[in-house]
Design a binder for these strands. Structure first.
Ligand SMILES: [Mn+2]
Ligand SMILES: [Mn+2]
Ligand SMILES: [Mn+2]
Ligand SMILES: [Mn+2]
Lengths: 220, 220
DNA sequence: AAATATTTTTAGCTATATCTAAATAAATAT
DNA sequence: ATATTTATTTAGATATAGCTAAAAATATTT
């Protein structure tokens, strides 16, 4: 089965919205995610259904098939490998990689991806902490916890961000939060859920609940 | 002016056929080069004419404009930089890079190309010996001579290939001809133009006129 | 100069991917 | 149970990029 660039983008969006192929996804949700109109989505869902990468029941949303999941994970693998390349080799900042990776992920060449993976030393995570599926689509996911779900006095390490927008990433750069940082929850304000976080045993950070909810950590 | 992928491919083909924007190019020639039908070419020439990257006079072929030449050279620059990347960093063979570079050249990101150029140490030639235009479109071209135009006893160095097809490149690999090899013409058969070439002062190579015409050298 | 051959363009069709507006199905509220 | 609201699909456009077949322009031959 071979997909067009547009089809790959839709399938990836559906995969993300379906929480890794677990839940069904509505036409409107896909339209919002893809920044297109529901009418365009209906059309595309019919096509993806015909290609059997999704199961499409009119008016009742879609579910990804096994085949679809595999293809979506291949595209995600390519996207994340390219992001690693851009950051590690071409000195891109982590907030500059997304759009370019969005194009690079559609280059059709198994050899290219195999060699790129090897050249990057088989990275397991992208610059935003998201896991890179292997060539069979297997993802070794770590249990991750949003900072706002951690309790006072708990310690851990930042491993990923939920929001990868440039605005959010630049903000994290500015305040000195980064992937790999050791953290400890010093305080949690009940009123608004804002938090006080100790970073690397030396720097104290105040953040809104909204920010905390977009930083993912493993507990230690 | 921004071009679609198809438009970039056509413009690049027209640039090559026009010998670097010097001669005018016919519809049929473009069709042959692009492996499409003349009817499709007529359509595309109208579009490229509207965008003023070519000057199109119906029935009389096209000439590239200054703007078109600049855009074509940008695409060629990207194509060749990616080829260098694939060979130098990802261990592609020189006969494996063309198709992938044909896709990669259309990725839209000035930062990406600037960084790639720097990462590769500002290479001046691609794996086939073709010059890489700088970001302003300037090409520092070396005077090159096809082997079949060299005389007996003349020496030189292989600097490029005219034909970059996998078949030809694999043949050169097999017989041990490569870019950078020092050569000397030992014999030239008048009857069929075939030649005897000494490579690196140790290996003797027999080649048809056809092969010789596709190997480019500088004299020394 | 006329006939013929070649080249190029136009007309009309297909496929992808988008849109707006209208129709219809499903969900919710009265 | 009906009416209303919301979600989704369909119908009909537009734009890109290709095709075949027919028409028209140009080039070549007689
Ligand atoms: Mn994409
Ligand atoms: Mn990422
Ligand atoms: Mn190309
Ligand atoms: Mn090349």
């Amino acid at each position: 089965m071979t997909l067009t660039t547009a089809e790959e983008n839709y399938l990836k969006a559906i995969y993300h919205l379906s929480d890794g192929a677990t839940k069904s996804v509505s036409t409107n949700d896909v339209a919002a995610e893809m920044k297109t109109k529901p009418a365009s989505v209906s059309d595309m869902l019919r096509k993806l259904g015909d290609k059997e990468v999704i199961e499409y029941r009119k008016y009742y949303g879609v579910n990804i098939t096994e085949e679809g999941k595999k293809l979506a994970l291949q595209t995600i693998r390519k996207h994340r490998l390219w992001e690693v390349f851009l950051v590690e080799k071409l000195q891109f900042a982590w907030d500059e990689v997304h759009e370019v990776a969005e194009e690079l992920e559609h280059i059709q060449s198994p050899l290219l991806i195999q060699r790129l993976d090897s050249y990057l030393n088989f990275p397991k995570f992208d610059p935003h902490g998201d896991p890179i599926p292997d060539e069979y689509g297997d993802v070794r996911a770590r249990p991750r916890l949003a900072l706002n779900e951690m309790e006072v006095d708990q310690s851990g390490q930042i491993v990923a961000v939920k929001d990868s927008s440039a605005a959010f990433l630049k903000y994290l750069d500015k305040v000195g939060a980064y992937i790999g940082a050791r953290i400890k929850v010093l305080d949690k304000v009940e009123f608004d859920g804002s938090m006080e976080i100790l970073v690397d045993q030396k720097k104290t950070l105040f953040m809104s609940k909204d920010v905390a909810a977009n930083i993912l950590a493993i507990q230690s």
